[in-house]
Design a protein around this nucleic acid. Structure first.
Lengths: 197, 197
DNA sequence: GAAAAAGTGGTACGAATGTCCCACTCTAGT
DNA sequence: ACTAGAGTGGGACATTCGTACCACTTTTTC
């Protein structure tokens, strides 16, 4: 129940300056998420990062959950845009390029953290699906195969798991192993075996 | 630095009753983790679940992190035992059996949550590696292939990702799709392509 | 230009949390 | 038996959190 006092309850602001302030809060939320993950997203941290008073966060976003959901959605869109750009520049081999820089690792870790969390929150689940679908269609395009191609599906699954494993476990042989595995998988595909039901 | 007052700082207790109390706390922690995930593990919740006073939790475990690490390790061992039992009973097809019961889903979600979290915590990272290695060797054994077989590696990666995706996104077609994909992958493998470097 | 709505921000509240303190009771070793 | 240390438990502390309050200023609407 919305108080009879001030609060936009998450709806879009009407005044230009307010729109910009809301965007700044969202940007701050995204940054915090990429740097410290789920736990780092607090009203106070967001307000401080955006150099706005604490009350602004509860004015523009109905709850922490809403802030989290919107920030996750934004993060996913940016990740997809990144992936698309990398694929356009380096072709499918970009998939195997290890983005080892710490900031990227932490960011990806944050994304996966939210992804798993989405299993407990329907609002986040929609975003999680969007992420999967987006990656899948970008991958299909990069490999020059139709969307829904079983090989693409398989490659994406294997790639995700190996990538996540590398992010979490940080083993020395991660990237090379993934490259080798993917290479064999993508050599195999177009023989007469039929997959999809 | 350990206070000059009471605290075992995580070391094993000496008295029999104390050993049992510590085990009860750990058991409670595991249950909480499986039911509510990372966030549900608080000293107070553990103490209440174990029907022990709050101070017992800080007496037997030096910090929440230690409690978390030990509980995660226990959870992983139980998961591996589960998997082994299922494989022994139903053979490799057990991999494709969907464990759809809610309690299992939530438990698996908790495991993955901790797994991702392990990317930020070296103590948890060791447990994460143990989980991967354990699954990998069980899978290899079930498929009658040597440990380190590239096909096993690939199958495990694909299976994990599809399984996690199903847990998180809860799409209707998850299990069937996974079954079809895995089936084709495991039909393909032993042709002359060579994978590992 | 006045009334209504939108936006602003300092502050406060209640609920949790991790951890610590300390007086107390047992048990083990001598 | 006695004493040192292990174990016990009730309580408190400082911190952090999400969120609500409310007086105030600015913008929009009529």
């Amino acid at each position: 129940m919305t108080s009879r006092f001030t609060s936009r309850d998450g709806a879009a602001p009407r005044q230009a300056r307010a729109v910009e302030r809301r965007a700044r809060l969202l940007q701050a939320a995204v940054e915090l998420l990429t740097e410290g993950g789920f736990a780092a997203l607090t009203h106070r941290a967001v307000a401080a990062r955006a150099r706005l008073p604490l009350a602004a966060t509860t004015y523009y976003f109905a709850s922490r959950d809403q802030l989290l959901t919107e920030a996750f959605a934004e993060l996913v869109e940016r990740d997809l845009a990144d992936l698309q750009a990398r694929l356009a520049r380096h072709g499918p081999t970009a998939l195997l390029a290890t983005r080892d820089r710490t900031c990227d690792r932490i960011r990806q870790l944050g994304l996966w953290e939210l992804y798993v969390h989405a299993g407990r929150d329907p609002a986040l689940q929609r975003v999680a699906r969007r992420w999967t679908d987006g990656c899948l269609s970008l991958l299909a395009a990069a490999l020059g195969r139709p969307t829904g191609d079983p090989t693409v599906r398989l490659a994406y699954a294997a790639l995700s798991a190996l990538w996540l494993e590398h992010l979490v476990e940080q083993r020395h042989d991660g990237p090379a192993e993934a490259a080798a595995l993917l290479h064999t998988l993508l050599e195999i595909p177009s023989n007469p075996h039929q997959a999809a039901p």
